[in-house]
């Protein structure tokens, strides 16, 4: 009797929770899980221009993907792109946030200046930086010219183009992450700093013992956003390089788009999408289950 009553109560609680989750679950199902399942299924089919009726080919798409040198180049590029953009933009945004938090005069101006790249759409940024990187009369080349250095062809040289992209993305992203750090900093109680000051703790120790650990939840959040962004941000490639020269700036998502809407190979595009989803899931899992435990939440 007692058991049954408890179970009924538990069920009621559960049903209530599910009811609360229902709206977002519906959206998740319709707009995320259903397409993911669709991509997963299509990735097992050959569906390209050569096969009017899609035919089941098992894992052949994945096999030919493994043999595709462009795919490996694109994955490699994306890893370097992530390594280049994630830690740098996080570090920079932390520094910017601490500066914007401390600064007394023109506080609004400083924050706006740091934040504005976030507001500009990626396509516009692509156009602006296309000009900045233009050889001969672009901004960077003009600047280098004053020192008598002949600027290179940033976007046209395979070894340089990725650096050029990384710098641009760090510039765009740092301001956005600064916003989160700024909020995080203002949540840290002033008393902690006061007592540290009374004890005469040096500044860098204050940072490592108080500021940094208390900002860890923000850092986790920001690093997930930064990492997923490094796979999601590809708009600029349309404007600036089309993935070139020689795929040196091509990224996974851009390659998926090319495969789907320029090669019209939907089976392969679905297989690539599946790989990307798995990759992102693994990364998110590592971050959540790996770092989450070591973070101090208040």
């Amino acid at each position: 009797m007692k058991m049954a009553a408890r179970r009924r109560r538990a069920w009621k609680m559960n049903a209530f929770a599910w009811l609360l989750l229902l709206p977002s679950l519906i959206f998740l199902l319709v707009f995320t899980l259903y397409p993911v399942a669709g991509a997963l299924k299509l990735s097992l089919f050959q569906a390209d221009l050569g096969t009017p009726q899609p035919s089941f080919i098992g894992l052949d798409n994945y096999k030919s993907m493994a043999e595709d040198s462009v795919f490996w180049k694109v994955v490699n590029n994306n890893i370097w792109f992530a390594i280049g953009t994630v830690p740098t933009s996080i570090l920079l945004s932390l520094l910017m946030a601490m500066f914007a938090n401390k600064v007394m005069r023109a506080r609004g101006l400083v924050r706006t200046a740091f934040f504005y790249p976030t507001v500009v759409p990626m396509i516009a940024i692509g156009n602006i930086w296309l000009f900045i990187y233009t050889p001969e009369y672009g901004m960077v080349s003009r600047f280098l010219e004053t020192f008598g250095i002949k600027g290179p062809n940033w976007l046209g040289t395979p070894d340089l183009v990725m650096w050029a992209m990384i710098i641009m993305i760090v510039w765009k992203e740092a301001g956005y992450f600064m916003l989160f750090y700024l909020a995080g900093l203002q949540n840290i109680s002033e008393e902690l700093y006061e007592s540290a000051r009374v004890d005469g703790v040096p500044a860098w120790r204050v940072f490592w013992r108080i500021t940094f650990p208390l900002l860890m939840p923000t850092t986790l959040f920001v690093s997930i956003i930064a990492l997923t962004n490094s796979f999601k941000l590809v708009d600029h490639l349309w404007i600036m390089t089309k993935g070139g020269p020689e795929n040196a700036s091509n990224l996974l998502l851009f390659y998926i788009y090319e495969t789907a809407f320029s090669f019209w190979d939907q089976g392969m595009a679905s297989a690539l999408t599946t790989v990307m989803i798995i990759l992102l899931l693994v990364l998110a899992a590592i971050q959540f289950f790996g770092f989450d435990r070591r973070i101090h939440y208040r």
Binding site: L130, T134, P135, E136, Y137, P152, N153, L155, G156, T157, T241, G244, P245
Partner: peptide, 18 residues
């Protein structure tokens, strides 16, 4: 110029006398 030359900047290079 060495390397890849941007499709869109070629006409502006010409107009700018580069």
């Amino acid at each position: 110029p060495e390397g890849a030359i941007e499709w869109g900047t070629v006409p502006s290079d010409f107009i700018e006398g580069k």
